[in-house]
Write a protein that binds this DNA or RNA. Structure first.
Length: 351
DNA sequence: AAAGACGACAACCGCGCACAT
DNA sequence: CATGTGCGCGGTTGTCGTCTT
């Protein structure tokens, strides 16, 4: 059916607001409130559309707004809440008095995302890069690994190249560095993306690093093995060499084989025929304590969501699986850390 | 000193939901 | 119930100041 535009664009002014316009809007709203945004610009004598007025008011003119630098506490709040609710900026902003969703969103995009990336943490999943790469190596059968490694590394590549060329990782405070070092040792045998990890552990020359990343990505793509028969196990030798090495490093006791159990049930890690041990039982975000003992199905993936569900995916799952979000989140901050004192409104988003 | 690159922030756009008619 | 309207939200774009070369 289509919507009628909120205003005739020909007759309205756009772009930066002048102090005069601000004054008109402010004085009008002070006297009459914000009952009908469509009428406000007309009554206030502004050549703006109501939507523009509303944005100006909510993002800038409101007297209860806090302008200026975000404090460390506010940043921590944003990061924690983002790990729970994703890009629901209005929900996050609601927990930060005086901040708007636009403020929070801008601050995230311009500062916090880079800050987390610099610490070796993927800002989408809030997991360390090494975890994500290792997860790729352990959760999927070899035929899928190359494709997913390519996809995942592609996501990180630009950010990493940026960091490597602009600011060395060693310049960042890095709680995730031990993980990265672990990933580095695990990935030494890798012919693929694990080249990245040593770059964080001991950054070589940036130019050399970039070349090594490119080569690693190429090899990850090129090393896809042929699929074995459905009833035959995957010998590690069928994995790309690097991924096999990475898997072996994380799971020395069980690094014997992958077994393919068909598409209906997904890929199951073999060995003793049981679930095997995920590195997730040894690592967790931030704290390093046991994270997902609640039975994170990392080794029995169905579908392709094993590279950590993105914020968008989590949102897409809202309402489909009661309690899923909350249970998954319980491990995010480690056992010694109460997740968050979330109001009902917030926790409702998580289920 | 000038030009280009980059970062930060303000503002815009389009979609979807809730509510009124 | 169908349609119209208002508003909120998240993603994207534009602009301006600062930094780098």
């Amino acid at each position: 059916m289509g919507r009628i535009p909120c205003c005739e664009k020909d007759n309205v002014k756009r772009g930066q607001w002048t102090p005069e316009e601000d004054n008109k809007l402010l004085s009008y709203i002070t006297q009459h409130g914000t009952r009908n945004w469509r009428l406000i610009p007309k009554n206030a004598g502004l050549q703006r559309c109501g939507k523009s007025c509303r944005l100006r008011w909510t993002n800038y003119l409101r007297p209860d707004l806090k302008h200026g630098e975000f404090t460390d506490a506010e940043e921590q709040t944003i990061i924690k809440l983002h790990s729970v609710v994703g890009c629901r900026w209005s929900v996050i902003a609601a927990q930060l008095p005086g901040r708007t969703d636009n403020d929070v969103k801008n601050h995230w995009n311009t500062k916090l995302k880079k800050k987390l990336s610099g610490m070796g943490i993927d800002p989408v999943t809030h997991k360390s890069f090494s975890h994500l790469m290792a997860e790729i190596a352990t959760t999927l059968a070899p035929p899928q690994v190359a494709h997913l490694a390519e996809a995942a590394l592609g996501c990180f590549k630009d950010e990493m190249l940026h960091l490597l060329t602009k600011k060395r990782p060693t310049d960042f405070p890095s709680p995730a560095m031990p993980d990265m070092a672990a990933g580095a040792s695990a990935g030494m045998a890798m012919g693929s993306g694990a080249h990245i990890a040593p770059c964080f552990a001991a950054p070589p020359q940036a130019d050399d690093t970039i070349e090594r990343i490119k080569m690693g990505l190429s090899r990850a793509i090129m090393s896809e093995p042929a699929a074995p028969a459905a009833d035959k196990p995957w010998p590690l030798g069928d994995m790309s060499e690097g991924l096999a090495g990475m898997y072996a490093a994380f799971n020395p006791a069980q690094a014997t084989e992958f077994r393919y159990e068909g598409t209906a049930s997904g890929y199951v890690l073999g060995g003793d025929g049981d679930q095997g041990t995920s590195m997730w039982s040894h690592h967790s975000m931030y704290s390093g304590s046991s994270g997902t003992e609640g039975g994170r199905p990392a080794l029995q993936e169905k579908g392709n969501d094993s590279v950590g569900s993105s914020g968008g995916d989590e949102e897409a799952e809202d309402g489909k699986e009661g309690g899923k979000g909350a249970s998954d989140m319980s491990g995010l901050f480690g056992s010694d850390c109460v997740l968050w004192d979330l109001p009902d409104e917030l926790t409702n988003h998580m289920c």
